[in-house]
Amino acid sequence: MLSVLNRGAAAPGALKPWLLLLPLVLFLCAFFLVPLGQVALMSVTEPEFGLGNYAHLTSDSLYLQVFINTFLTALGVALCCLLLGYPLAYLMAQSSPRVAALLMLLVTMSFWTSFLVRTYAWMVLLGNNGPITAALAFLGWNPPPHLLFTRLSSTLAMVHILIPYMVMSLYSVMKRIDPALLRAAESLGARPWSVFRQVYLPLSAPGMVNGATLVFMICLGFYVTPVLLGSPQEQMVAGLIGTQIEEFLDFGQASAMAMVLLASTMIVLTVYHRRFGLDRLWG
């Protein structure tokens, strides 16, 4: 703080911003940094001091399996969101303003609807008495497969829940692609596919990276949907952390896993930041 004051002495009123910031900074220290620090602390002190919890994470193949599972699920969800989100964002970018606004309305509506509501909707859709099972049975799949509480159901729901992030990232980039560039490519002899491949796709790449990073990161720490819809045998990290606390009250192990999860998220963010700058990610 002293150095702050010293440097501020050159500019009169340099204290004012800190006075304005003080309440919030104190609040965040007390109710954000300290609790976070406590998690870090618990990971090396509960039940006893040392790196035992972390050693346990690496030695027990269950944990490793969960981390790999989480990572692969997040990757898959990000990929699915990209593959599905791209045509929709493209449709929006190429449509008349009215149609684009209508589609954006839909995406926004989904975006703002509680995760729980959307998770519940998928329970209805995929349930044993739901329309999809009925349709499969009608098509001759007898007995129809059990869809709920599988990796498929949780992945599908997560894709549905996270796809708005992807569409918004893509759309904001696509909308800024100058149509003259596409015409230029065409006038220079590019067929429609080449125009897309050589011009549109590379120019929309920033949106793909943004969207995929967001979805991947959110998915890494996803708790609600995997817990409610996923297979109990194929948990994800957040779910396992929850189990550790609720069922075993094992704060040390849970904290250690939380720290690894946090670190993974930070790594993704840092890599993104190094390459593209963070301020772009939050839109």
Partner: peptide, 22 residues
């Protein structure tokens, strides 16, 4: 950075923190 940081935290991590700290 500090004002935007809570955004980047997986909520489950903070949940443990609050559970024990609060």
């Amino acid at each position: 950075l500090m004002l935007t940081m809570p955004m980047a935290m997986p909520h489950i991590v903070l949940a443990i923190g609050y559970y024990s700290y609060l």
